[in-house]
Design a protein around this nucleic acid. Structure first.
Length: 564
RNA sequence: UGGGAGGUCGUCUAACGGUAAGACUGCAGACUCUGGAUCUGCGUAUCGGGGUUCGAAUCCCUGCCUCCCAGCCA
């Protein structure tokens, strides 16, 4: 987003307009304070990245601050593993919070505020069961029925609420509710629950509390305490804004402006925290950081870069429209970043043996290869060349189709940084499959140059059989089969793609032997890959991050479609 | 049949009463020691119907469609 260190103007957004209007009117004294408020009940995913970029980005843009606040009001679902992963992911994405808070830091203050509302007759302890509350809430067209406890005395409410806190009552037996309007067309205003009883160990407060505030009774006040000016959240909270406002107003505390924006949806990606948790818990993926998952930890392990993801978040913009972003935009952003930074290397994923008959057996030459044509400072490296090589099986066709430029009988191609070679014959197995290709080379073309100026239609990659090392390469495809929609009574996992992970043994340049986990490479003409955390010097493991654009694959496919 | 929020190229986003723009995708081409990258060109959109206006994606009316809401989840 920046050129020569100068921030280019960010694309306009309605949130920026609102902030500018507030600054112009002096509403918050020109201050901008935001926060990223995850619930620590799962790992962060690409949808959270959008929120992080918006919250931290806007704060930075306006010279404000952005906090990280854990919305940890439900001990039954939250835990430190999630807290830790979230902090790691936010930092990895490239952001550092100005202050770190937990909603649980405010439990005592929240309790006092609840007491204050009780004293004003604006809250009461309700003895209804969850089922009774549901059945008396009414419908969209009918008002709810008031709780029989709605008019309890302040003294009794105070006493009961204190005893709720003291642990005298079992889970679900009572709640503290706000007394607002059982006839409101907005369900959130029909005497919403403020506190419920949960005898559950909280990851921070332990057993100090057995009553916990609901989201609505915690979020706005947490924002208020922190001096948040603009409380950004997703569209599904629009209906909650009246309640957010009600609590701030009735408590008489600093009142931030809640602003809702559209949640990120991505084609072919599962961004439901519940479903991600299911996949992890059922062992259908290798963990929260499975490279097929759209979690930040999974994408990181897969090789997606923080800058690529940040750029993506900038490209998709922000609005209030419910839409779905095409996955290829994300891939574009990742490729774009990797293209600038990833070192090039040669690797053959589906090896086909090539013997150069006129090349001296036993001879080895060191060819000079460019590490990154986009970055001269990346330098060059030597690559061993010898008589027996491997090339990509797909780079040879005995009977080349139209517009196929690569190796085939009688045709000459360039071996990248190597020599021009011409195919002279093939060796087949009993099944008639080509298992070996014989060629001759032109010694004058060393390094891949053409002194006489003759052209070849194609340049292909290769590795020397004697020098290449084996590496496990994990190829990923969509976790869910595109277009497969589970029926209503079916589990969402029926759409799982059985071919989402393929492992192959590739022949790779020895230069990548000790690649550190997360180190990204471009396997020339194939794609971007990064070393997995399972990788060892003895047995390197690479994840395919994303394929390179493949024009030939596209034209071949269209050829096949034209003549079925 | 209640309330809330939205409908602009295939997708996402802009245009703030004054020539509907950009990105991704798609197609065509140039260039290339990666069929990569880069570059060029092409294509497709204001949900419908009324109105106000010299002029409407934008303002008004009306219809249609989509999403969210009846957790002691967030």
């Amino acid at each position: 987003m920046s050129i020569d260190g100068v921030e280019s103007p960010r694309p306009p957004s309605f949130i920026r307009d609102l902030i500018e209007a507030d600054n112009a009117s002096g509403r918050f004294g020109g201050k901008v304070q935001t926060r990223f408020p995850p619930e620590p009940n799962g790992y962060l995913h690409i949808g959270h990245a959008k929120s992080i970029c918006i919250n931290f980005g806007l704060a930075k843009e306006f010279g404000g601050k952005c906090n990280l606040r854990f919305d940890d009001t439900n001990p039954t679902k939250e835990g430190v593993e999630y807290v830790n992963s979230i902090m790691e992911d936010v930092r990895w994405l490239g952001f550092e919070w100005d202050a770190l808070f937990y909603a649980s830091d405010y439990f005592e203050q929240l309790y006092q505020w609840a007491v204050a509302l009780i004293k004003e007759g604006k809250a009461y302890v309700c003895d209804l069961s969850p089922e009774q509350v549901r059945s008396t809430r009414g419908t969209p067209t009918e008002p709810g029925q008031p709780s029989p406890d709605r008019d309890r005395s302040v003294e009794e409410n105070l006493d009961l609420f204190a005893r709720m806190r003291a642990g005298e009552f079992p889970d679900g037996s009572r709640t503290l509710r706000s007394k607002i309007d059982m006839a409101s067309p907005n369900f959130n205003m029909r005497d919403p629950v403020m506190y419920r009883i949960l005898h559950s160990e909280h990851h921070r407060t332990g057993d100090a509390w057995c009553i916990f505030p609901m989201y609505d009774f915690a979020h706005g006040q947490s924002d208020s305490i922190e001096g948040i000016t603009h409380s950004l959240c997703t569209l599904e909270f629009e209906d909650h804004r009246p309640l957010y406002d009600w609590y701030c107003d009735n408590l008489g505390i600093h009142h931030p402006q809640q602003i809702e924006f559209d949640r990120l949806n991505l084609t072919n990606a599962q961004l439901s925290k519940r479903k991600l948790l299911t996949l992890v818990q059922r062992g259908l993926v290798s963990g929260w950081d499975d490279p097929r998952l759209p979690t930040l930890s999974g994408m990181r392990r897969r090789g997606y870069t923080a800058e690529g993801i940040r750029n993506f978040c900038g490209m998709i913009g922000v609005s209030k429209t419910n839409g779905i972003i095409e996955y290829n935009l994300l891939e574009h952003a990742v490729r774009d970043d990797l293209n600038k930074h990833a070192l090039r290397v040669m690797a053959v994923l589906d090896p086909l043996k090539v013997v150069i008959d006129n090349y001296p057996a036993g001879q080895t030459e060191q060819m000079e290869a460019v590490n990154n044509p986009e970055d001269a400072s990346a330098g060059t490296r030597p690559v061993a060349f010898s008589q027996v090589l491997y090339i990509e099986r797909d780079d040879f066709r005995e009977d080349p189709p139209k517009q196929y430029y690569r190796l085939s009988p009688g045709r000459e191609v360039r071996l990248r940084y190597g020599y021009f070679i011409t195919c002279t014959s093939v060796v087949k197995n009993e099944q008639g499959e080509v298992i070996e290709v014989h060629c001759t080379y032109d010694p004058a073309t060393r390094g891949g140059n053409s002194p006489d100026g003759r052209k070849v239609k194609s340049t292909i990659h290769w590795v020397s059989a004697a020098h290449a090392i084996d590496a496990e390469v994990r190829l990923y495809d969509h976790l869910f089969q595109p277009g497969v929609e589970p029926k209503e009574d079916e589990d969402f996992t029926v759409a799982l793609n059985p071919a989402s992970l393929t492992r192959v043994t590739a022949k790779v340049e020895p230069s990548v032997a000790g690649a550190a986990p997360l180190a990204s490479y471009q396997f020339e003409r194939v794609g971007y890959f990064c070393a997995d955390r399972d990788s060892t010097p003895d047995k390197p493991v690479f994840n395919r991050t994303v394929q390179l654009k493949d024009t030939w694959a596209k034209t071949e496919k269209s050829h096949q479609q034209k003549k079925p």
